[in-house]
Design a protein around this nucleic acid. Structure first.
Lengths: 152, 152
DNA sequence: CTACATTATATGTACCTACATATATTTGCT
DNA sequence: AGCAAATATATGTAGGTACATATAATGTAG
């Protein structure tokens, strides 16, 4: 079993097919990467989905987003955005106000405090991306292309 | 934004780098694939980690595994194997007995019922793997190689 | 042989996801 | 206008993960 391979990671030397191995490899790699992210966010008292929402809101440059619009942009669409926003409101990182035009909707907006927290995180996120230094940019591009193709 | 791309999936046209896009793509693809698996297992009243443990135990061909040995072989190592085994015991799909040589350990073993359930699932799992029909075997191999390399 | 560290598992808590259902508001139909 | 369908969000519950801590059994140093 090659060092660093998925076979070694889960002590499973024989997969039925290259496709089955790929499924396991995707789950395993996602968990591996997610754990690194989680460790980073932890020192800022954020969880990955909380960070995801904060970063989406920052991208809005002050404009609010509804809960539905947040879900639309989230990595894990089955996240319960409503309750994650709850936590962020408690920490005063976002504000929630009822939309005046459509009172079913809420407008979620990042606060100054939220923006400052993200600014502190930025350099760490950037260097986290260099986690991938073992891949060339061309290899990263190939991975992106093939992952998109897989989901077709 | 290309159809089926990660950019489209999370409505994010600009990534800082190919590496940052790759991180998001891995998380998104893992969730996408995981949801398909979950849907399949659901009709058999199993969750993905429950299935993972059952399949590991089947691979033992009757030999038991300790909880630690299970974690070692699981895709998500931070799973709480102890509590997942609880659920499987309740459903009589596995048995748990104290190890006579080392009474700290428990021996977990798949039951006949557990094996039968997996047999019923087998054909569905096989056809699920063909979810990847959009990739050639060579492309799957490339993905596996690059994912292993990424984690180095 | 006793005291202490180590190991294997279990449990408590906070947060998250999955799914079903509830509540409030708006839209559309007649 | 009046009422049903659609929409946006919230909430209850079960299962799961992350992390700290507890409990029990074993190993080990002196």
């Amino acid at each position: 079993m090659k060092k660093g391979s998925i076979e070694e990671a889960i002590r499973q030397p024989n997969f039925k097919s290259e496709y089955q191995k790929l499924a396991v490899n995707i789950f395993y790699t996602s968990a591996w990467l997610g754990n690194r992210h989680r460790d980073l966010f932890k020192s800022f008292d954020l969880t990955p989905p909380q960070f995801n929402i904060l970063r989406i809101l920052r991208g809005q440059k002050g404009q609010p987003l509804s809960v539905n619009a947040l879900i639309d942009r989230m990595i894990d669409k089955s996240s319960n955005a409503s309750r994650i926003v709850d936590k962020l409101v408690e920490k005063k990182l976002v504000e929630r106000t009822t939309c005046p035009n459509d009172r079913r909707q809420v407008e979620v907006r990042i606060t100054l405090e939220g923006n400052e927290l993200l600014s502190q995180l930025d350099p760490f996120i950037d260097s986290m991306d260099n986690t991938f230094a073992s891949l060339t940019e061309q290899e990263a591009k190939t991975l992106n292309t093939l992952l998109d193709k897989l989901r077709q």
